[in-house]
C-alpha cells in the first residue's frame, strides 16, 4: 500500500485555472452585449452552437459514443419551426414543440438500431442519417423550398412579445445557454451521468454492475438530440432564414472543432470552444476564404497534440498531482 499525502497545494491554483476559460468567454459575451453591432450577431451564432455542442458533448464526451449525424435533428426541428411558423401561422413555441417531438421520434426510431453498431459502422450510420436529412431538405421542395430555403421566419417570441432587437436576442440566448450548461453540469454530477461515464469507460464492466449499456446510450442519444433540436429551432428564429446548407456536414465539423478546442467531456468545453471558434474568423477577416481550411487544420493539430482541449488545463494539473501522490 502506498501512503500518500492529501493534495493541498494546487487546489487553489487549480480552481483559478479552471475558471479562467469561463471568465474569458463570459467576458467576451458581456463585451458583445455592451458594444452591440456585428459582434452581437457573431456571439448569437456562437451561443446557438453552444447548445448544439453541449448536446453532442453529452453523447460523445460523457457517454463516449460517436455521432456524425446530429445535424439531422437540428434540421428536423429547424425546418419544422420554419415551416409551421411561415406556412401555418404557428407561434414559435408550439412550432418548436412539434419540431422537438419530430426530432425525438426520429432519434428514437433510428437510435435503436444505430446504437447497436460500433466503431466505423456507428460513425458511418450516423453520418448517413445526417446526409439523408440533408438530401431530403434539398429535394422535398414543396415543404423546404430546396436550395432557395425558407425566409421570413418570425423572431423568437412568447405570448405576443417578440424579441426583435439583437441585444434582446443575445440576452435570451445567454439564458438558454446558462440553462443548457446547468443541465449538462447536473447530468455530469448524477447517477445518470455516472452511468454514462461507465458505459464510456467499459461497456462490459458497466453491464456487470447492472447498468444497461444499450438503454443509457439511447437515453444519451435522445438527450443530445433534444439539444440539437433546440439549437436548430433557435437558429431559424434568430436568423429568420433556413436552407439545407445551414445543417450540412460543415455544421458537424464545426461542432467537432468547437468540442475539441473547448475540451471534450468537460462542462465548460462547449461554451469555451464555441466562443473561440466563432471569434477566430472575425479576428482574421481578411482570411475569410481560409476559414474551413483553418478549421480542418486546427482540428487535426488538436487531435494530435491536445486531444483534451483547452479547458482541461486544470485537470492536467490534477493528473500531475495525482501521479506525484501515487509515486510518493
Amino acid at each position: 500500500m502506498t501512503k500518500s499525502p492529501t493534495i493541498t497545494f494546487p487546489d487553489m491554483t487549480r480552481r483559478g485555472l479552471g475558471a479562467l476559460p469561463w471568465i474569458a468567454a463570459a467576458g467576451v459575451l458581456a463585451y458583445a452585449f455592451f458594444v452591440g453591432g456585428y459582434l452581437t450577431t457573431v456571439m448569437s451564432f456562437a451561443l446557438i452552437y453552444v447548445v448544439f455542442v453541449t448536446g453532442l458533448n453529452v453523447f460523445m464526451g460523457y457517454a463516449g459514443q460517436v455521432s456524425f449525424g446530429h445535424n439531422a435533428f437540428a434540421a428536423l426541428s429547424g425546418y419544422t419551426s420554419a415551416y409551421l411558423t411561415t406556412s401555418h401561422g404557428f407561434a414559435p413555441l408550439p412550432a418548436f414543440g412539434a419540431g422537438l417531438a419530430l426530432a425525438l421520434s426520429c432519434a428514437l426510431i433510428v437510435g435503436y438500431p444505430t446504437l447497436r453498431l460500433k466503431g466505423h459502422y456507428l460513425a458511418m450510420a450516423t453520418l448517413a442519417i445526417g446526409l439523408i436529412v440533408y438530401e431530403v431538405a434539398v429535394e422535398w421542395t414543396s415543404v423546404t423550398q430546396g436550395y432557395m430555403g425558407i425566409s421570413g421566419i418570425p423572431p423568437i417570441g412568447i405570448a405576443g412579445y417578440e424579441i426583435t432587437s439583437e441585444r434582446g436576442q443575445l440576452a435570451f440566448l445567454t439564458v438558454i445557454v446558462a440553462l443548457a450548461t446547468l443541465v449538462s453540469w447536473r447530468i455530469r454530477e448524477s447517477r445518470f451521468g455516472r452511468a454514462l461515464s461507465a458505459v464510456a469507460g467499459s461497456e462490459d464492466a458497466a453491464r456487470a454492475l447492472g447498468i444497461s449499456a444499450s438503454r443509457y446510450k439511447l437515453s444519451a442519444f435522445l438527450a443530445s438530440a433534444a439539444f440539437a433540436a433546440l439549437a436548430g429551432s433557435l437558429f431559424v428564429h434568430v436568423v429568420g432564414f433556413v436552407s439545407p446548407e445551414v445543417y450540412g456536414l460543415h455544421m458537424v465539423v464545426l461542432a467537432f472543432t468547437m468540442l475539441y478546442v473547448g475540451g471534450i467531456g468537460t462542462i465548460a468545453g462547449p461554451f469555451v470552444g464555441a466562443v473561440i471558434i466563432s471569434l477566430l474568423p472575425e479576428m482574421f477577416r481578411q482570411f475569410k476564404d481560409y476559414q474551413d481550411l483553418a478549421y480542418g487544420a486546427a482540428l487535426i493539430l488538436l487531435l494530435i497534440y491536445a486531444p483534451r482541449g483547452l479547458s482541461t488545463i486544470s485537470s492536467l494539473f490534477r493528473r500531475a498531482a495525482a501521479k506525484k501522490a501515487v509515486v510518493s
Partner: peptide, 28 residues
Amino acid sequence: LWNRNATMFVMILATLAAQIVIERSTLI
C-alpha cells in the same frame, strides 16, 4: 495519431478533417 494510439473515432475525424483541408486548398 497511430503512434499515440488514437481511438478509431479520432482517426475517422482526423481523416475527415484532412478531406476538408484538401478540399478547401483545392478551392483556393
